[in-house]
Design a binder for these strands. Sequence first.
RNA 1: GAUCGGUUAGCUCAGCUGGUAGAGCAAUACACUUUUAAUGUAUGGGUCCUGGGUUCGAGCCCCAGACCGAUCACCA
Length: 502
Amino acid sequence: MSLSEQELIRRDNLEKIRALGIEPYPSSAYPVTHTAAQIHNQYTEDHSEDFKEVILAGRLMMKRIMGKASFAELQDNSGRIQIYVNRDEICPQEDKTMYNTVFKKLLDIGDFIGVRGFVFTTRTGETTVHVQELELLSKSLKPLPIVKTDAEGQVHDAVTDPEFRYRQRYADLVVNADVKEVFVKRTKMYNSMREYLNAKGYLEVETPILQPLYGGAAARPFKTHHNTLDMTLYLRIANELYLKRLIVGGFDGVYEFSKDFRNEGMSRFHNPEFTQIELYVAYKDYEWMMNTVEEMIEKVAIDVTGSTKVEVGDHVIDFKRPWKRYTMYGAIEAFTGVDISEMDEKAMRVTAQEIGVGLDPSMGRGKIIDEIFGEKCEPHLIQPTFITDYPVEMSPLAKKHRSKAGLVERFEAICNGKEISNAFSELNDPIDQRERFEAQLELGKRGDDEAMVLDEDFLRALEYGMPPTAGVGIGMDRLAMIMTNSSSIQDVLFFPQMKAEE
RNA sequence: GAUCGGUUAGCUCAGCUGGUAGAGCAAUACACUUUUAAUGUAUGGGUCCUGGGUUCGAGCCCCAGACCGAUCACCA
């Protein structure tokens, strides 16, 4: 590895610091008393007495050196604050090395320092820490990208290269203030949901990620191998089947934030690993679940953004209840003007052609409906909308509709033109479930590599009896994109999957 | 996987018809005791993504490849 000029200088500075008898990586705890944000929020000149002694720690992010007194900026977890460093104050004795050499020359942007001092307001009105003691806490050897913000808040030379930002998220976080905010919001989203579900008495659980059979969704899995057991294992594509086993076992409500893995294409909406929350509640149906999802996500929007109205791209999305509801046929009729509910496969094909939806000859009736919906309706559904009653062929784990033949009791929540949630009245008839699995096996034999596999153990569980149950999955990454106004999934994942470097 | 765009100093970006590689910030040196994108003066810093080709000569043109992004296809 060859080092740049600046990296060599920093290594040289490190040695010089050591030569002065200063440990560049001290191990003692540093007694921080304040954060930058606390001082900005709480300090006023009227009660400067309360800020006579503050201790802060963080990265040195900017130096404005001016002879015997300098200004610099310290960045901690909460933000930035200016510090004032005066030579004769940090070096009261004859020896001015700490200021002249260490502070002015050997400290670099990115170094962690600790400062003790008092808070005051400068002539230009900036709240500043007047430093009386300065300590190096950790030396930085690699120069950070320099991003500057001027008085108008205008950011100069922002690091926008996605490759740099995703591969070196640690540096992205240091340098781009708003990135942290995205991830704080993401965590708030999780907390908000936990709060909501725990208050209802549902139990947060954990189920296997390494599974001998993958199930619960139509997707290609990652495959791995356990050496001792000498068996093939799959990374889960969904946790549905395990959570339903827990409902069989007698829990009334269980949920899991589930990291799932799908061995499929990547795009700004797809990362090979992603997170869903799945929730299963006994003695409920999909109608109940729609109300629950609505209520929960409305709360999430308020907890995360402070409002039910969330700005996303060019739109303002309002999560205020109640959300619009369409049946799938109803949505198709609303957006194309054609009622296809009574059509057979042949008639549907003709209709699809007429309205300009391209079809594959292998597609069955259910798939055709989905295709028309995906082409003609979904992209237009910006405000949160429930689509209900899906064709049975596409939903092997959902209960048949109580009154409409050929359909299942299923809904998806669509928002900003994308699915964010999928739910059904769960199929609990073990014989029906076996037949549905068998139909999937047929699809598999015909070459559908996303067809589900038959899970005997799951069927055994259902045979013991599962209460009527409503289940839902909500895509956490997709929801995070909406709640943080991010246009790609990579922006809401700390470390999105990337090709290997070099 | 397909199409299009990008890749030049630590960072953000220029780079003419193909003729010795540029700026700002950062860095280095000096000056400066309330600055704030601090300022002034000076200096150093390049595998122009990689490999071929055309040419007297390639950052630029041609071919192949790598990585990133956008759009499309599949999927959540």
